[in-house]
Simulated assay, not measured.
Amino acid sequence: MAQPVTIGDIVENWTPRPHPLSNPQHHILQGQYCRLEVLTSTNDIVIQQLYDAFKPTEETHFKYLGYGPFKTVDEFKQFIYMKEQPSGSNVLYAIFVNDMAVGFITYLRISEEHGTIEIGSVNLTFGTFGYRRVVWSCNALNMKSRVAALRFGFQYEGTWMKAEVSKGRSRDTALFSIVDDEWSQIKEEFQRWLNPENFDINGQQLTKLNGAKVNPRHHKITDSS
Protein backbone atom coordinates (compact mmCIF):
# COMPACT_ATOMS: atom_id res chain seq x y z
CA MET A 1 0.00 0.00 0.00
CA ALA A 2 1.29 3.42 -0.92
CA GLN A 3 2.36 5.57 2.00
CA PRO A 4 0.50 8.88 2.45
CA VAL A 5 2.46 11.91 1.33
CA THR A 6 3.14 14.49 4.04
CA ILE A 7 2.90 18.09 2.88
CA GLY A 8 2.83 21.47 4.61
CA ASP A 9 -0.11 22.99 6.46
CA ILE A 10 -2.69 24.94 4.47
CA VAL A 11 -2.34 28.71 4.91
CA GLU A 12 -5.89 30.00 4.95
CA ASN A 13 -6.79 33.06 2.86
CA TRP A 14 -3.16 33.80 2.02
CA THR A 15 -2.42 36.87 -0.09
CA PRO A 16 0.95 38.50 -0.86
CA ARG A 17 2.15 40.88 1.85
CA PRO A 18 2.61 44.61 1.19
CA HIS A 19 6.06 45.97 0.43
CA PRO A 20 7.52 47.82 3.45
CA LEU A 21 7.42 51.14 1.59
CA SER A 22 3.99 50.74 0.01
CA ASN A 23 2.51 52.95 2.75
CA PRO A 24 4.12 56.43 3.09
CA GLN A 25 3.36 56.35 6.83
CA HIS A 26 6.05 53.67 7.18
CA HIS A 27 8.81 55.89 5.78
CA ILE A 28 9.33 57.31 9.30
CA LEU A 29 8.97 54.99 12.31
CA GLN A 30 8.98 56.57 15.76
CA GLY A 31 9.97 54.31 18.64
CA GLN A 32 10.45 54.73 22.37
CA TYR A 33 14.18 55.41 22.23
CA CYS A 34 14.95 56.12 18.57
CA ARG A 35 13.46 57.01 15.21
CA LEU A 36 13.90 55.26 11.86
CA GLU A 37 13.76 57.13 8.58
CA VAL A 38 14.16 55.78 5.06
CA LEU A 39 17.80 56.26 4.06
CA THR A 40 18.84 57.29 0.56
CA SER A 41 22.23 58.11 -0.91
CA THR A 42 20.99 61.60 -1.85
CA ASN A 43 20.78 62.78 1.77
CA ASP A 44 24.31 64.13 2.19
CA ILE A 45 23.80 65.34 5.77
CA VAL A 46 22.67 61.92 7.01
CA ILE A 47 25.37 60.13 5.00
CA GLN A 48 28.03 62.31 6.66
CA GLN A 49 26.56 61.74 10.13
CA LEU A 50 26.60 57.97 9.58
CA TYR A 51 30.13 58.06 8.25
CA ASP A 52 31.26 59.96 11.34
CA ALA A 53 29.23 57.79 13.72
CA PHE A 54 30.56 54.31 13.08
CA LYS A 55 34.01 55.11 11.71
CA PRO A 56 33.73 53.04 8.54
CA THR A 57 37.47 53.33 7.87
CA GLU A 58 38.28 50.89 10.70
CA GLU A 59 38.99 47.37 9.44
CA THR A 60 37.79 45.70 12.66
CA HIS A 61 34.20 46.86 12.05
CA PHE A 62 34.06 44.88 8.80
CA LYS A 63 35.96 41.74 9.73
CA TYR A 64 33.05 39.41 8.92
CA LEU A 65 31.26 41.55 6.33
CA GLY A 66 31.48 41.41 2.57
CA TYR A 67 31.97 45.18 2.27
CA GLY A 68 34.05 47.96 3.78
CA PRO A 69 36.05 49.58 5.14
CA PHE A 70 35.40 52.88 3.36
CA LYS A 71 38.29 55.28 2.89
CA THR A 72 36.14 58.32 2.10
CA VAL A 73 32.58 59.51 2.66
CA ASP A 74 32.05 59.39 -1.12
CA GLU A 75 32.98 55.71 -1.13
CA PHE A 76 30.48 55.10 1.67
CA LYS A 77 27.83 57.08 -0.22
CA GLN A 78 28.40 54.91 -3.29
CA PHE A 79 27.92 51.82 -1.12
CA ILE A 80 24.54 53.14 0.08
CA TYR A 81 23.60 53.90 -3.52
CA MET A 82 24.41 50.34 -4.59
CA LYS A 83 22.37 48.95 -1.67
CA GLU A 84 19.37 50.82 -3.08
CA GLN A 85 19.62 49.04 -6.45
CA PRO A 86 17.46 47.73 -7.95
CA SER A 87 14.73 49.87 -6.46
CA GLY A 88 12.59 48.01 -3.93
CA SER A 89 14.82 44.97 -3.44
CA ASN A 90 16.39 46.48 -0.30
CA VAL A 91 14.96 49.04 2.10
CA LEU A 92 17.39 51.04 4.24
CA TYR A 93 16.47 52.94 7.39
CA ALA A 94 18.74 55.40 9.18
CA ILE A 95 18.56 55.18 12.98
CA PHE A 96 18.24 58.54 14.76
CA VAL A 97 18.83 59.24 18.44
CA ASN A 98 18.22 62.84 19.52
CA ASP A 99 17.93 63.80 15.83
CA MET A 100 21.42 62.49 15.06
CA ALA A 101 21.95 59.56 12.67
CA VAL A 102 23.87 56.88 14.57
CA GLY A 103 23.43 53.78 12.39
CA PHE A 104 21.30 52.05 9.79
CA ILE A 105 19.41 48.81 9.29
CA THR A 106 18.19 47.08 6.16
CA TYR A 107 15.31 44.98 4.93
CA LEU A 108 16.61 42.63 2.26
CA ARG A 109 15.57 39.53 0.32
CA ILE A 110 12.00 40.80 0.52
CA SER A 111 9.48 38.24 -0.76
CA GLU A 112 5.99 39.71 -0.82
CA GLU A 113 4.70 36.52 -2.44
CA HIS A 114 5.86 34.26 0.39
CA GLY A 115 5.75 36.77 3.26
CA THR A 116 9.42 36.47 4.19
CA ILE A 117 12.02 39.14 4.83
CA GLU A 118 15.56 39.34 6.17
CA ILE A 119 16.38 41.29 9.29
CA GLY A 120 14.76 44.66 9.84
CA SER A 121 12.24 46.08 12.29
CA VAL A 122 10.73 42.88 13.68
CA ASN A 123 7.65 44.49 15.23
CA LEU A 124 6.73 46.25 11.99
CA THR A 125 7.41 43.13 9.94
CA PHE A 126 4.93 40.95 11.82
CA GLY A 127 2.47 43.44 13.26
CA THR A 128 1.94 45.82 10.35
CA PHE A 129 2.82 43.95 7.18
CA GLY A 130 1.79 40.45 8.24
CA TYR A 131 5.03 38.77 7.16
CA ARG A 132 5.42 35.19 8.39
CA ARG A 133 9.17 34.87 8.82
CA VAL A 134 12.14 37.12 9.62
CA VAL A 135 15.68 35.87 9.01
CA TRP A 136 18.97 36.78 10.67
CA SER A 137 22.03 35.57 8.78
CA CYS A 138 25.68 36.13 9.56
CA ASN A 139 29.17 34.81 8.97
CA ALA A 140 29.26 31.53 10.91
CA LEU A 141 32.52 32.67 12.56
CA ASN A 142 30.98 35.90 13.84
CA MET A 143 30.20 34.85 17.41
CA LYS A 144 29.04 38.31 18.51
CA SER A 145 26.36 38.30 15.81
CA ARG A 146 25.30 34.74 16.67
CA VAL A 147 24.96 35.60 20.37
CA ALA A 148 22.98 38.75 19.50
CA ALA A 149 20.58 36.74 17.32
CA LEU A 150 19.79 34.36 20.18
CA ARG A 151 19.46 37.22 22.66
CA PHE A 152 16.88 38.87 20.39
CA GLY A 153 14.83 35.66 20.26
CA PHE A 154 15.97 34.20 16.95
CA GLN A 155 16.43 30.44 16.79
CA TYR A 156 19.33 28.74 15.03
CA GLU A 157 18.26 26.83 11.91
CA GLY A 158 21.52 25.66 10.41
CA THR A 159 24.58 26.68 8.43
CA TRP A 160 25.01 27.04 4.69
CA MET A 161 28.46 25.62 4.07
CA LYS A 162 30.66 27.48 1.57
CA ALA A 163 27.83 29.92 0.93
CA GLU A 164 30.02 32.72 -0.41
CA VAL A 165 33.53 33.82 -1.26
CA SER A 166 33.89 37.07 0.69
CA LYS A 167 37.03 39.19 0.31
CA GLY A 168 38.81 36.16 -1.12
CA ARG A 169 37.88 33.90 1.80
CA SER A 170 35.35 31.07 2.02
CA ARG A 171 32.33 32.02 4.12
CA ASP A 172 29.85 29.72 5.84
CA THR A 173 26.57 31.48 6.68
CA ALA A 174 24.66 30.75 9.89
CA LEU A 175 20.88 31.18 9.68
CA PHE A 176 18.47 32.16 12.47
CA SER A 177 14.77 32.99 12.31
CA ILE A 178 11.65 34.15 14.13
CA VAL A 179 8.25 33.18 12.71
CA ASP A 180 4.96 34.98 13.21
CA ASP A 181 3.42 32.70 15.84
CA GLU A 182 6.52 33.11 18.04
CA TRP A 183 6.59 36.90 17.95
CA SER A 184 3.97 37.76 20.60
CA GLN A 185 5.98 36.18 23.43
CA ILE A 186 9.26 37.63 22.17
CA LYS A 187 7.63 41.06 21.87
CA GLU A 188 6.54 40.87 25.52
CA GLU A 189 10.14 40.16 26.52
CA PHE A 190 11.35 43.20 24.57
CA GLN A 191 8.70 45.37 26.23
CA ARG A 192 9.72 44.09 29.67
CA TRP A 193 13.39 44.75 28.96
CA LEU A 194 12.79 48.24 27.51
CA ASN A 195 10.55 49.33 30.38
CA PRO A 196 12.15 52.41 32.01
CA GLU A 197 11.87 50.66 35.39
CA ASN A 198 14.41 48.11 34.14
CA PHE A 199 17.15 50.78 33.99
CA ASP A 200 18.94 52.57 36.80
CA ILE A 201 19.65 56.31 36.99
CA ASN A 202 22.77 55.81 34.85
CA GLY A 203 20.83 54.03 32.12
CA GLN A 204 22.26 50.61 32.96
CA GLN A 205 19.95 47.60 32.60
CA LEU A 206 18.88 45.81 35.78
CA THR A 207 17.95 42.57 34.03
CA LYS A 208 19.11 41.33 30.65
CA LEU A 209 17.12 40.67 27.49
CA ASN A 210 16.72 36.94 26.94
CA GLY A 211 14.56 36.48 23.87
CA ALA A 212 15.84 32.98 23.14
CA LYS A 213 14.34 31.40 26.25
CA VAL A 214 10.88 32.92 25.74
CA ASN A 215 10.68 31.74 22.13
CA PRO A 216 8.23 28.77 22.07
CA ARG A 217 10.53 26.96 19.63
CA HIS A 218 13.32 27.03 22.22
CA HIS A 219 11.16 24.99 24.60
CA LYS A 220 10.22 22.50 21.88
CA ILE A 221 13.89 21.92 21.09
CA THR A 222 14.81 21.65 24.78
CA ASP A 223 11.95 19.28 25.60
CA SER A 224 12.78 16.95 22.71
CA SER A 225 16.51 16.77 23.42
Rank of each mutant, 00 (worst) to 15 (best):
E84W: 05
I119T: 15
D74A: 02
K77S: 10
K220L: 15
P56E: 10
M82P: 09
H19R: 02
N195S: 08
E157D: 09
T40I: 09
L36G: 01
T42V: 06
D172N: 13
R171K: 12
I95M: 12
K187D: 09
Q48Y: 02
R151H: 00
A174V: 04
R146M: 11
G66L: 00
G120K: 02
I110A: 13
S22L: 01
A212N: 09
Q32L: 13
S22M: 00
M161S: 05
N23G: 08
T6G: 01
I110Y: 10
F96D: 12
E84Y: 02
M100H: 15
Y64R: 01
G168V: 14
K63P: 00
V97Y: 09
Y51P: 03
L21V: 02
T40L: 08
Q204A: 13
F104N: 02
M100Q: 15
L92M: 14
V147Y: 07
C34H: 09
N202G: 02
E59R: 08
G203R: 01
F126N: 07
M1R: 07
T57S: 14
K83G: 04
K213Y: 10
P16R: 14
I28F: 08
P20E: 02
L141H: 02
M82F: 12
P86C: 07
V179Q: 05
Q30Y: 01
N90Q: 06
I105H: 15
F54I: 00
W193H: 12
N210P: 00
V214T: 03
I221C: 04
V46G: 09
P196V: 07
E189I: 09
V147P: 09
L36T: 05
N43Y: 07
N13K: 11
Y156H: 13
P69F: 15
I119M: 15
C34T: 10
D223T: 06
I110R: 13
R17E: 11
V73P: 10
T42Y: 11
N215M: 14
L36D: 10
V5H: 05
E84D: 08
V134W: 06
A2E: 13
H114K: 11
V122E: 15
K55L: 12
Q25R: 13
G88W: 07
H61E: 05
P86Y: 00
R133D: 11
R132P: 07
E37V: 04
E37I: 09
R169N: 11
I80G: 07
G127P: 00
L92D: 03
T57M: 03
Q48R: 05
M143T: 05
W183H: 10
D74N: 12
R132S: 11
A53T: 01
V147C: 06
K220D: 13
G120I: 04
N202R: 11
I7V: 15
E113N: 10
C34K: 14
K208S: 12
S145C: 12
G8D: 06
I221L: 14
Y131D: 06
V102F: 06
D99S: 14
N98T: 08
R192A: 02
N210F: 04
E188W: 10
F152K: 11
A101W: 11
A149S: 06
T106R: 15
D223Q: 06
K220A: 14
G158S: 13
I110D: 09
V214E: 03
Q185R: 07
N13I: 12
S111L: 03
K55W: 08
V102Q: 01
S87K: 11
Q155M: 15
E189N: 08
V11R: 01
V46R: 00
V38H: 13
M1F: 07
T6P: 02
V165F: 12
P20V: 07
N198T: 00
K213R: 08
Y67I: 03
